[in-house]
Each structure stands twice: as C-alpha cells, then as structure tokens.
Simulated scan of single mutants.
Amino acid sequence: MNVKPYLDSTYLKTASQAGLSEAANIVVVKNTIDEAILEGFKLVMIRPEYVSLAKTTILSAGSNLLIGTVIDFPEGKSNLETKIKEANEAIENGADDLDFVCNYQAFKEGETALVKQEILIGTQIGLANNKTVKWIIEVAALSDKEIIQLSALIKNVVLSNFKEENYASVFVKSSTGFYKTENDLPNGATIPAVMMMLENASPLPVKAAGGVRSYEDAVEMINLGVKRIGTSAAKTIADGENTTNHIK
C-alpha cells in the first residue's frame, strides 16, 4: 500500500522546544517542506508563523502539496476571539488545512455550550474559505467516555449546521503530540482511541496523530478507516522503517 497520500508530514516545535536557534529551526522547517514536496506527501503541517514560507516554497516548486497549520496550539483553551484571529491569519497566509485544538478542558468541566460554539464558528470560517478543518480532541487527556462524547459532539454540531457535501472536510483528530502524560503513557493515537473516534465521529473523517511509528502502524490505521495520519517521521514510515521518535 502507498501510504504517502495519507501522510501529513509534521514539524511543530518552536526553536526553544527543539533546542535550536531561530535560524536553525527555520532550516528544519524548510527541509520538512522540501522533503514533503519531493516525497509526494499529502500535506506539510507546520506552525502558523511558517505558513507564508511554505506557500512561497511550494509555489516555486510547482507542487500540489497542501499546507496545514495549528490553531490555538497546543492547549486549546484560548477564547473564541483568539481562535478566530489565528484562523483568519492562517487563511490569509495560504493555509489549506486548519487544525484547531478543541477546548477539551472546558468540555471536561461540562462547558459544552462553549465547545459547541467554537466548533460551529471555527468550522464555518474554514468551510467558507474552502479549507479543511480538523478538531484535535487530545485523547490522552480524556477518558474513554469523554473520547466518545466529544467525538459525537463535534459530529452533531457539523451534521446539524452544515450540508452533507461538507462532511468530508471536517475531521476529528486524535492528538497534538505535545500533551504530557504520566508514567510514559501514550500521548497520541492508540488503536482503541481511534476505534472510538471512528465509531462516534462517523460520517466525519478521522485523523490519527501521534503514536504511528511504522509503515505497519500506518497501514493498520488506514485499514481501520483513518483518512489522514499526522507524523514527524513521514519519510521513515513511507520507506517501511520503524521510528522511536515522538510523532506529532
């Protein structure tokens, strides 16, 4: 199986997180973009401040590579105004996919009206600009019951407010890859979590991010029904190798 069309090649570290200078970090970003173009991946997923760089690079290469970026990353607890501002700036700079971090903490605290409102408005902004929207629910921070409930909540908001033709453009996504777990527990997509998402988000598509560390893992996720995979080791996976890196 050719997994490349499913892969969102990802680099979301700041310079300080990577232990690099700003200039050196930009080199890593540029290399990630160049590799994604060369390898024919679906998309390159980068931080908002690098979207313009990606757009220029991709246009210069005559490539069809898509650009994705994250909104309210990685905690998702900013107010709706902040989320909207970040989304509009990303659209203006040339992003194709907007990966919003859902306010999962608010959801856990029972503030479902707040969460529904941000999903509605964020999705409206994306779809109105012909963008793909993904809602990151951060499965490692949720119980099984909460994974089921939040996946269903996102689905219900979309099904109640948008046309069927839009469903394929609104994803439920597992993880940021930056959540800190205790005792080295998985902080990204697991088979049980993804199965719960698939069952309860359908007909919305699901993106598995984090935890996919080999070609075999990727194929298993695709066979389950996942439509996109976020990974910081896209080439390693596509080449059929394993990686022990943390995958974003």
Score class of each variant (00 low, 15 high):
201 A>Y: 05
176 T>A: 07
205 P>V: 01
28 V>L: 02
156 N>I: 05
14 T>L: 07
180 K>F: 03
37 I>T: 09
192 P>D: 07
190 T>N: 06
141 A>C: 11
179 Y>C: 01
243 T>S: 13
233 A>H: 04
121 I>D: 06
33 I>H: 00
209 A>I: 08
31 N>M: 00
27 V>K: 01
9 S>G: 02
172 V>N: 04
214 S>C: 14
237 I>R: 11
73 F>D: 06
112 T>E: 09
36 A>V: 14
228 R>L: 10
31 N>Q: 10
215 Y>P: 12
109 E>F: 15
234 A>W: 01
27 V>W: 00
110 G>P: 12
130 N>W: 00
13 K>Q: 14
192 P>L: 09
15 A>Q: 01
204 L>R: 04
147 I>A: 05
64 N>D: 14
132 T>A: 05
82 T>M: 13
134 K>G: 08
133 V>P: 05
6 Y>R: 01
210 G>A: 07
153 L>V: 08
174 S>Y: 06
110 G>N: 09
196 M>P: 00
28 V>A: 00
89 E>P: 03
49 E>V: 05
6 Y>L: 06
131 K>Q: 09
160 S>I: 03
66 L>E: 09
222 I>D: 03
243 T>V: 10
28 V>D: 01
166 N>K: 15
202 S>D: 10
163 K>Y: 07
151 S>Y: 01
155 K>M: 10
244 T>G: 05
95 A>Y: 05
112 T>M: 08
243 T>R: 09
34 D>R: 04
18 A>I: 02
